[in-house]
Design a binder for these strands. Structure first.
Length: 126
DNA sequence: CTTTTGACAGCGT
DNA sequence: CACGCTGCCAAAA
């Protein structure tokens, strides 16, 4: 069963719109907790969880061997801007809108323990 | 408590 | 552009 941190990572990953990506470092920063390596650890456990893992990449726009190959197919399919086998972050990096930030904050707050006092009806899924 | 290990990041050579 | 080093964070040994 997923740890709370992992869950938060998956929710953020799931919030990334098709055609865009975020780096491990971005996720960590947005969560306001842990570091890129923690995000990576979480992603390594994401298999079989409906998580768009190919939208979470390294800071240089690549992924480790074995994943990069499969990811390229998705990148092509979603028309994510890439160049010589690597994503062009300058163009593909997701820049959340207000609604996006609201969601990200909610996840971060939830993780921080700042309980969802507003836990009402935010059933937010894909 | 120290060491090792990762789907990492940044910088210098 | 490719390595190699150092810094980083948390978990496990």
């Amino acid at each position: 069963m997923p740890q709370p941190y992992d869950d938060a990572v998956y929710r953020l990953a799931g919030a990334i719109p098709p055609g865009c990506v975020l780096t491990y470092g971005d996720i960590a920063e947005l969560l306001g907790s842990g570091g890129p390596r923690q995000v990576g650890a979480a992603m390594s456990q994401s298999t079989g969880r409906n998580v768009p893992w190919w939208r979470v990449v390294r800071a240089d726009g690549t992924l480790p061997d074995g994943l990069i190959e499969r990811a390229k197919e998705h990148w092509t399919e979603e028309e994510i801007p890439m160049h010589r086998g690597r994503i062009r972050l300058a163009a593909a990096r997701w820049q959340p809108d207000d609604a996006g930030f609201a969601f990200l904050d909610a996840v971060a707050a939830d993780l921080a323990g700042t309980a969802p006092a507003t836990s009402n009806c935010q059933g937010h899924m894909l």
